[in-house]
Nucleic acid binder design. Structure first.
Lengths: 136, 136
DNA sequence: CTTGACCCTCCTATGATGGGAGGGTCTATC
DNA sequence: GATAGACCCTCCCATCATAGGAGGGTCAAG
């Protein structure tokens, strides 16, 4: 199986497959005579694994850990769960941050008339205690 | 006011102030004889504006628009509100995406015993229909 | 034996930020 | 005036995951 077929089978782009090879995340089992990367079913599964893990927001370092646990049939689920929970906390905290932003913005937008007049609570908030009108 | 003082007064790092100058977001009013950037109160306010807008998750392009509206005392609040609402939708959709990830992950982690045994719903999910045990 | 689809490597860019090297400027103190 | 130390300058590099392209080699079907 060459890289294009592996891409179709795994749902990972050719570009990214080369990148995963380069950084050592998923290496092809070998090279053809013409120097083409060769992937077998195991590696295609790993690529699919990586794609799904990316879809859950894991970064490359976390995926490298998960992959190595996946490859190790003697792993403990404890380790996997620990990684997942750390990532989950990270996700939750980023969600909270973004929600704080969204809430603030929603409030400001709600207070803004959104008409032809220049008065705008949004800009006033961003401008802080010294809006341009009073400052200049 | 040189760059270090502007940084303290605005809460923006020296590095970022130079960057904003380079990309034309906030330019110093002039240069000293020794080629030092010179900032006045107006520009320090603009830097503070940028910092706050970044804190609400606006990207540079959006901030450039907001800044130009801020500078224009004849703007309509309609335009500002439109930018804010577009950004808000973007924020909300990213929040929903991350929440979907978090929910999936929470469910998987909940189902995972997290003990010494290798059985792990998290890895099984990532591995898809063909977990490593049955594939190899 | 050519054509077109595919593959290779190497370089570039993204967006916002930080780090550092190598060198010039300013200010206070001696 | 000289010197030290704090500050500033520009230019380069790195991040993270991803994509685009140039220039050139390989392969299979006609």
């Amino acid at each position: 199986m060459n890289i294009g077929q592996a891409a179709k089978a795994s749902g990972v782009s050719v570009k990214m497959i080369r990148y995963y090879d380069e950084v050592g995340l998923v290496r092809p089992s070998g090279r053809s005579e013409g120097n083409y990367r060769e992937y077998d079913a195991r590696e295609v599964n790993e690529l699919r694994f990586v794609r799904r893990a990316r879809g859950l927001g894991f970064d490359m370092a976390e995926i490298a850990q998960l992959l190595s646990l996946w490859r190790d049939r003697d792993r403990s689920s404890r380790e996997v769960k620990a990684i997942a929970q750390r990532h989950l906390e990270d996700l939750d905290s980023r969600i909270r941050e973004m929600q704080a932003m969204a809430d603030t913005l929603r409030h400001l937008a709600h207070c803004c008339a959104g008409d032809d007049r220049p008065d705008c609570p949004i800009l006033e908030d961003l401008g802080g205690t010294a809006p341009v009108h009073t400052t200049l």
